[in-house]
Design a protein around this nucleic acid. Structure first.
Length: 255
DNA sequence: ATGGCTTGAGTGTCAAGA
């Protein structure tokens, strides 16, 4: 089973790249973030044509998450239960017996900002809900744009980013709290190239200079981590015309 | 260097991203 996640930064703009990615990799599930549209602008027909089911939790202009899958998704959930949040950042479904959770975690803007407090609260709500969800679904994967670089080796210039947004200790503690639920960072199950990142700033030739951060992650519950045979970042779409600023992350699980 | 680029809104220019 192949699981993937990709912050596309507008699905309307990136649809050709997404269709290319589906044709190339044929993932069993692809989690998308920042669709930036309501259902009316969501390309259901093109995705069905490509052989994929699609469920969406969208809104105008900002945020928006979708789950694409070859098998029909069951028990679709939108938003964190019991957490009052107008921002559309979470969708989950059961696909081939795996509970797939797709999240677009808040950016936080700056340490100490109002959005930073929202970010930390959002992670607290996510972690609280996931505890029960993991008990109900031992085979669970949490994929998405976490907007957290978990360690210094996930940062191109750790000194410049020290205690800055995406890298601060409270954010890294929030990431650690997810691991403490019994989840494993699939990427770090394997030897990886140094300076592996999943996001590069559009400005200042960020990608060409590999000035990036690893903020997109696939966390796996224990049974899935045991079955995981590979986890990679696919930099190819970042080299296309008008790319997303994020690259997809892919995990391969044994059946 | 608080900039640099990209998107969506909406038609001039701003918010937001990370």
């Amino acid at each position: 089973m192949k699981l993937a996640t990709w912050n596309v930064n507008s699905l309307k703009v990136r649809l050709p790249h997404v269709l290319d990615f589906l044709a190339t990799h044929r993932p069993d599930a692809l989690c998308l973030q920042e669709t930036k549209t309501e259902d009316g602008g969501f390309p259901f027909a093109a995705l069905v044509e490509a052989g994929y089911h699609a469920v969406h939790n969208g809104q105008k202009t900002y945020n928006g998450v979708a789950l694409l899958s070859r098998a029909e998704p069951a028990d679709v959930l939108r938003d964190i239960p019991g957490y009052d949040d107008p921002q559309k950042r979470l969708i989950a479904a059961t696909i081939d017996g795996v509970r797939v959770v797709c999240g677009y975690m808040p950016n936080g803007q700056a340490v100490g900002a109002e959005k930073y407090a929202y970010k930390l609260g959002w992670f607290t709500a996510l972690t609280g809900w996931l505890q029960g969800e993991l008990a109900r679904h031992p085979r669970l994967a949490l994929l998405g744009d976490y907007n957290i670089a978990p360690e210094d080796r996930d940062v191109h210039d750790p000194d410049a980013w020290r205690e800055q947004i995406l890298c601060s200790t409270p954010e890294r503690d929030a990431f650690r709290a997810l691991l403490n639920l019994g989840l494993t960072d699939a990427f770090r199950l394997f030897e990886q190239p140094e300076k592996s990142y999943s996001w590069w700033d559009y400005r200042d030739l960020g990608f060409r200079r590999n000035k990036g951060l690893r903020i997109d992650h696939i966390l796996l519950s224990a049974p899935l981590a045991a079955a995981c045979g590979a986890c990679t970042i696919d930099k190819a779409p970042r080299k296309l015309e008008r790319p997303s600023d994020h690259a997809p992350v892919i995990a391969d699980l044994a059946p």
